[in-house]
C-alpha cells in the first residue's frame, strides 16, 4: 500500500472512499451523470442569444420621433421603421378603409396613411402613437401598425368628486 491520499486520517480509522470498480459489485451506481440539465442550459443559452440579437437590432432603436424620421428620410429610403408623434388631426377614413391622419413631434409633422388593423380604443387626437411602416416616395408615411403610447400621467375618473367627498367628510 503505497498510495497515501488522506493525510489527516488516523490509520486505524481510515475509510475506503475510492469508487467501487470491482466486477463483483453489481449494484448500479446510485446516481448517473445526467446530461439533461446541460442540454436545458444550452437551450436557455440559445434563447438568450436570440433575444440579445433582437435587443441589439430592434429594441435599442425602437422608434424615431417625427423630426428625426424626417431628417433621416433619405437615409431610411423604403426601410421599415417606427416613428413616434402625437396625433394632430381628426382621422379620415378613405373609401378603401385606410385611415388618414397627421402626427407631430417638436414642431415637425408627418401625414400617415394607415392600412393595417385598427388602433386601440385609446386612439384619439392629442395622444402619442408609434406607427410602424415606411416613407412613400410622395412623402407620406405608409403605416401597417399603430401602437398607442399612453403617457405616464394618470387621472382618475371623477377624482374631483372623490376629493370633494373626502373634504366633506373631514369638515
Amino acid at each position: 500500500m503505497t498510495d497515501h491520499h488522506d493525510e489527516g486520517a488516523t490509520s486505524g480509522d481510515e475509510l475506503d472512499l475510492r469508487p467501487r470498480t470491482d466486477a463483483t459489485d453489481t449494484t448500479p451506481p446510485t446516481r448517473r451523470r445526467s446530461w439533461g440539465a446541460y442540454a436545458l442550459l444550452g437551450l436557455v443559452g440559445v434563447a438568450i442569444v436570440a433575444v440579445l440579437g433582437i435587443a441589439l437590432t430592434q429594441a435599442t432603436v425602437f422608434f424615431y420621433n417625427v423630426d428625426e424620421a424626417l431628417e433621416r428620410q433619405a437615409e431610411l429610403g423604403d426601410d421599415t421603421f417606427r416613428m413616434q408623434g402625437s396625433v394632430v388631426t381628426e382621422t379620415e377614413v378613405r373609401d378603401d378603409g385606410a385611415l388618414l391622419f397627421t402626427i407631430g413631434f417638436d414642431g415637425e409633422q408627418a401625414d400617415i396613411v394607415h392600412v393595417g388593423d385598427e388602433p386601440s380604443d385609446l386612439f384619439e387626437v392629442g395622444i402619442p402613437v408609434v406607427v410602424q411602416g415606411r416613407w412613400e416616395t410622395d412623402g407620406h408615411f405608409l403605416s401597417e401598425q399603430i401602437l398607442v403610447k399612453h403617457s405616464e400621467t394618470y387621472e382618475a375618473e371623477n377624482q374631483d368628486r372623490l376629493d370633494d367627498a373626502y373634504d366633506g367628510a373631514d369638515g
Binding site: 442550459l41 436557455v44 443559452g45 434563447a47 438568450i48 433575444v51 440579445l52 433582437i54 435587443a55 430592434q58 429594441a59 435599442t60 425602437f62 388593423d117 388602433p119 386601440s120 385609446l122 386612439f123 401598425q145 399603430i146 401602437l147 398607442v148 403610447k149 399612453h150
Partner: peptide, 24 residues
C-alpha cells in the same frame, strides 16, 4: 392600451432577458 400583446420594446426585451437569465 397600446393595441398589441407583444412588441420588442426595450423594456419588454429586457424583461424577457431577465426571465431567461434567471431560468438559466
Amino acid at each position: 392600451t397600446w393595441g398589441t400583446y407583444w412588441v420588442w420594446d426595450p423594456r419588454i426585451t429586457a424583461t424577457t432577458l431577465l426571465f431567461l437569465v434567471y431560468l438559466g
